[in-house]
Simulated assay, not measured.
Amino acid sequence: MTIKTAPGFDTRDILVAIMMNVLWGLNIIAVKMGVAAIGPFTAATLRQAIVFVICASALRIVPGKMRELIGLGVLSGALFYVFINASVAVADNLSALAIAGQVGVPFSLILGVVFLGEKIHRTRIIGMALSFAGIAMLLFDPAVLDELPGLMLTACGSFIWAVSSLVQRRLRGVPVVTIYAWMGLVGTLCLAPLAWIFEPEHVRALPDVPLRSFAWVVFSAIGSTMLGHGAMSWLLQRHPISAVTPLTLASPIISVIVASLFFATPLTPLMIAGGTIALVGVAIVTIRTARAKERQV
């Protein structure tokens, strides 16, 4: 029996892409379980500390890039997790958060236009409008009304992710492991004081936390951050951006489904409709943006 693959993709590439999406998709469960057991700021601190330990050997001064590396560490290594972990802590329906998190893609496009002078045409504008419209539909779902604080925090985290994506564009040529080493170090240094100030009871209780609770945080750090993003980098080294980027669109679908099944939370018709519209918009923006970047190379 032969396995059919996309043009240019062999069986190993497909398996790596599947692993990447599964790790990212399941991460929403790991984050929720880690936050519930250890606290949002403490769990985030441990996650970044693990990333730093793994990548520490690649930590080095990169002339002309240190401002961006430190800035990325503050944004993507610390502030992003402050908002995302807080959103997960206050929310029950994580499927709604997984849908709302897709707003980061149109945010990134808007920031690129405002700050980088990028040009967008009708197709991506339509995709962006669909993304916002689909996510806005969640606000009309009675099953999601109680999740508004979590949705707002997720939107803030997605905006920070979008800003971080602009900063990361200025780090082309810097090894990915070096970037993550700085993100882990700066993230840990920023998050640790927050954990100590706002969650002293969780920090003091760390020696008594069961290993299974630590395992959730380890999964996020190694599975989602290191293996997931490592797989993405590996695929980008072998294939064009326009071929690889669409492969990431499966992860939010996995997140929505597994969160609903694992936590037994409702997945209403309005959530499904809004999520579908949002993901179609995200797919349009993602694919068109990837092709535009490819033409610029």
Rank of each mutant, 00 (worst) to 15 (best):
V258W: 05
A181F: 07
G73L: 04
M66Q: 15
M19A: 11
I197H: 10
G157S: 10
T289E: 15
V113P: 00
S87E: 02
T42D: 04
A250T: 11
P207S: 13
T2Y: 13
T268S: 12
A264M: 10
V114N: 12
T225E: 05
F219R: 01
A6D: 11
R212M: 12
N21I: 05
M1E: 15
H239C: 05
V90H: 08
A6E: 14
M152Y: 10
I18M: 09
P240Y: 03
S260I: 07
I110K: 01
A231W: 01
G34A: 11
A181S: 15
V16F: 07
P149G: 10
M19F: 08
A283V: 07
M137L: 14
E118Y: 05
I277E: 01
T276E: 02
G223S: 06
R204F: 09
S213I: 03
I99P: 00
V282K: 00
E68P: 00
L249V: 09
P200T: 12
I179S: 06
V244A: 05
F140T: 09
A36F: 06
P63I: 11
M183N: 15
N85P: 01
S108L: 06
F219G: 01
L191Y: 04
I110L: 14
K119Q: 15
T154K: 05
P40D: 03
M66K: 14
I125S: 13
L261G: 06
S131A: 15
P193Y: 12
V244T: 11
I70W: 15
A100S: 13
G64I: 10
V35W: 01
F263D: 04
S57E: 08
M183T: 09
G173N: 10
I61H: 15
I3N: 14
T225D: 02
E201A: 15
P106E: 10
A143Q: 04
V53Y: 01
L79F: 13
I222R: 03
G157K: 00
P175V: 06
G184P: 03
L235K: 06
M20T: 15
I61E: 07
A136V: 07
L247G: 01
C190H: 02
W196D: 00
S131Q: 08
P193N: 11
R122C: 12
P106H: 08
V244I: 10
G77P: 02
S220R: 00
I28H: 04
I222N: 04
I254Q: 05
A195L: 11
E201F: 08
S165M: 12
A129L: 12
P149C: 13
P240F: 04
M128C: 15
F262T: 14
T286L: 14
N93I: 08
R291F: 07
A155P: 02
R124W: 00
C190I: 06
A44Q: 03
A143C: 03
M183L: 12
V82L: 08
V74M: 07
C190F: 12
R12E: 14
T154I: 14
A37N: 06
A155Y: 00
I125D: 00
L72I: 11
I179L: 15
S165H: 07
V144M: 05
G34L: 05
I110T: 13
H229V: 04
V203G: 03
L94K: 03
G150T: 02
A98C: 11
L75P: 01
L189C: 13
V174D: 09
M19L: 14
P40W: 01
